[in-house]
């Protein structure tokens, strides 16, 4: 096994994304280039429509770039097929979404179990229960998402993201659907666990306060990378 700490966890190489629209071709991203080292916490900042979410989708292999590629732990994501990319996600990546994306017919604990089950792990339930306890929801195991508040739902999502002990976590506006106080508690939890686990974090936000807590900030404007600090 290679020593992963020698490589960047994420490397973006000249990513462009163009889509056709009724007004002609639209360039969402242009020649984005950066790399993220293990343990970094990187905020991707920018106004609405600046291309943050598009970039995140490409970095996670959920979407394909028009040009350029992404290396995850040195492996070219787009040299792999759709299923290969899914394998990389199962193996190395966790997600937290703005709108939680819990499955409504699964209880809290089952939602957390799902990624482990997809990976064929036998200890799914034990692990899931431990992680729900870790995010403070040990009394909500058998609740359905609709029976949970927004903050609770996002904590279930955080447990689901970390349960596979990913080396890389993508978070897309994780507080976007939450009120200020709840949002702050969720972010606290996210950073706390991230530190504990030594996970590399890529966090999309338009909130400067959240971005401040990261070790590094990438600023997008009109699809171009304008700042890296």
């Amino acid at each position: 096994m290679t020593d992963r700490s020698q490589y960047p966890v994420v490397e973006a190489r000249g990513i462009s994304k163009r889509v056709s629209s009724p007004e002609g071709e639209l360039e969402l991203l242009r020649d984005i280039q950066f790399s993220i080292l293990p343990g970094e916490a990187v905020a991707v900042l920018g106004a609405s429509g600046s291309g943050k979410t598009t970039l995140l989708g490409i970095l996670a292999g959920l979407d394909t770039p028009s040009a350029g590629t992404v290396l995850i732990e040195g492996a070219d994501l787009f040299a792999l097929g759709e299923d290969g990319r899914a394998g990389v996600r199962r193996e190395a990546i966790g997600f937290v979404f703005q709108s939680f994306h819990l499955l409504p017919t699964l209880t809290a604990v089952e939602n957390v179990m799902l990624p482990l089950e997809l990976a064929g792990r036998a200890d799914a339930r034990v692990q899931a229960e431990q992680w729900l306890a870790r995010v403070g929801l040990e009394r909500r195991l058998r609740h359905y998402p609709r029976q949970l508040s927004g903050g609770e739902q996002q904590r279930v999502a955080i447990a689901r993201a970390f349960v596979t002990r990913p080396r890389l976590l993508f978070a897309d506006e994780p507080t976007g659907n939450l009120d200020l106080a709840t949002g702050r508690r969720v972010i606290d939890l996210l950073f706390e666990i991230n530190r504990e686990q030594g996970t590399t974090l890529v966090l999309v936000t338009h909130d400067d306060k959240v971005a401040e807590r990261c070790t590094r900030r990438l600023r997008l404007d009109g699809g171009r990378l304008r700042g890296d600090a």
Partner: peptide, 15 residues
């Protein structure tokens, strides 16, 4: 939505 989430969590098309 289920399928999208499952794909996102690393499920293969076959699965």
């Amino acid at each position: 939505d289920y399928c999208a989430v499952m794909r996102c969590l690393g499920a293969s098309q076959r699965l």
